[in-house]
Design a protein around this nucleic acid. Structure first.
Length: 304
DNA sequence: AACCAGGTCGTGA
DNA sequence: TCACGACATGGT
């Protein structure tokens, strides 16, 4: 009765890099009973629960989407994982802009920029400020457990999944008090989350409105939310609105770019962003993600 | 025990 | 404009 959907020989895809490069937070790794070269995760996204496994294939990788029908893959997961896009073109364009990225891309190959839900992306990156990735994941999970809709048992493929609720909708966050939001351990971000939820719930800021604006106008509108600055707005543009030219500059990107492009000299974030967008053009967002993962892995420019 | 974390806000020069 | 401390919470 449980039907799995299998895709074979996918190129430029590695599940661990896709999920663990800091673009999404509502997932967990399954690490029991795996053979060499296999990766398995539970993902809560797009109002669904996905149990997924990657295995080596003859040419690329094979993905097994457990308990998934073809229509569900066609209408949801294919776009979510950005599988219609040819990353060989993207990679060679980035390498042409800066040959030093070749080694970095090779080391972090298989990254895809996910096409995530706009509202979840917005709230998740508001949470992300001044927090480490494991803590962001914890708050996202707390918010979902406390305020989101519980899964129907028929939606869950594995009984021992650590999740049991979807990310809250704008309406659910609108209905929650600031105190209730605060129980998720989001701390001083609670009023920020409330303001974002309110603006989306009332229709002042929606994906439909944002998608009609150019990237700079959309960023301005996003920044009218209390608690959304340049960086969070750029993450929402890149991960939640498909604006691949966005180049979020956080402490990591600042360190990496200063190291690579400014001879280690302290440089304002807006200069770094401006130069990167000139250098990488419409591929800036992808370049940013390879660089971010590289910087995290090697702790580029970190003291201590 | 201080100090830091995929930042942003409010304040004072 | 620009520097700087405050802001919850949890981990070294």
């Amino acid at each position: 009765m449980n039907k799995n959907f299998v895709i074979e020989n996918i190129k430029d895809f590695h599940l661990a890099h896709v999920l663990e490069c800091g673009q999404c937070f509502h997932f967990s790794r399954v690490d029991t009973g795996l053979n060499e070269g296999e990766y398995e995760y539970d993902i809560v996204a797009m109002g669904r629960v996905l149990h997924i496994k990657e295995e080596p294939d003859t040419d690329g990788v094979r993905l097994i989407l457990y308990n998934t029908e073809k229509w569900e893959y066609d209408t949801v997961w294919k776009d979510y994982f950005d599988l219609d896009r040819d990353y060989s073109v993207i990679k060679s364009e980035i390498i042409e802009s800066d040959p030093r990225l070749e080694e970095i891309i090779l080391e972090n190959d298989g990254i895809r920029i996910l096409n995530q839900d706009f509202f979840e992306t917005l709230i998740s990156f508001i949470i992300s400020q001044n927090k480490q990735i494991p803590q962001i994941k914890q708050v996202v999970r707390n918010l979902s457990d406390e305020l989101g809709t519980k899964f129907d048992v028929t939606m869950i493929d594995r009984l021992d999944s650590e999740f049991d609720a979807f990310f809250p909708t704008p309406e659910q966050l609108h209905n929650a008090s600031e105190e209730e939001v605060r129980r998720s351990k989001c701390g001083f971000r609670a009023p920020y989350i409330k303001d974002a939820a309110e603006k989306v719930y009332t229709g002042e800021i929606t994906m439909e409105i944002l998608s009609k604006l150019d990237t700079d106008e959309a960023r301005e509108l996003l920044m009218s939310i209390h608690g959304v600055g340049e960086k969070v707005a750029n993450c929402v543009l890149l991960f939640g609105l498909g604006r691949r030219e966005a180049f979020p500059v956080d402490v990591w990107m600042k360190r990496i770019c200063e190291y690579m492009y400014y001879d280690g000299v302290d440089t304002p974030k807006y200069i770094i962003e401006e130069d990167a967008r000139k250098r990488f053009g419409k591929y800036a967002g992808y370049a940013q993600q390879y660089l971010f993962m590289y910087g995290q892995k090697h702790k580029i420019g970190i003291k201590r």
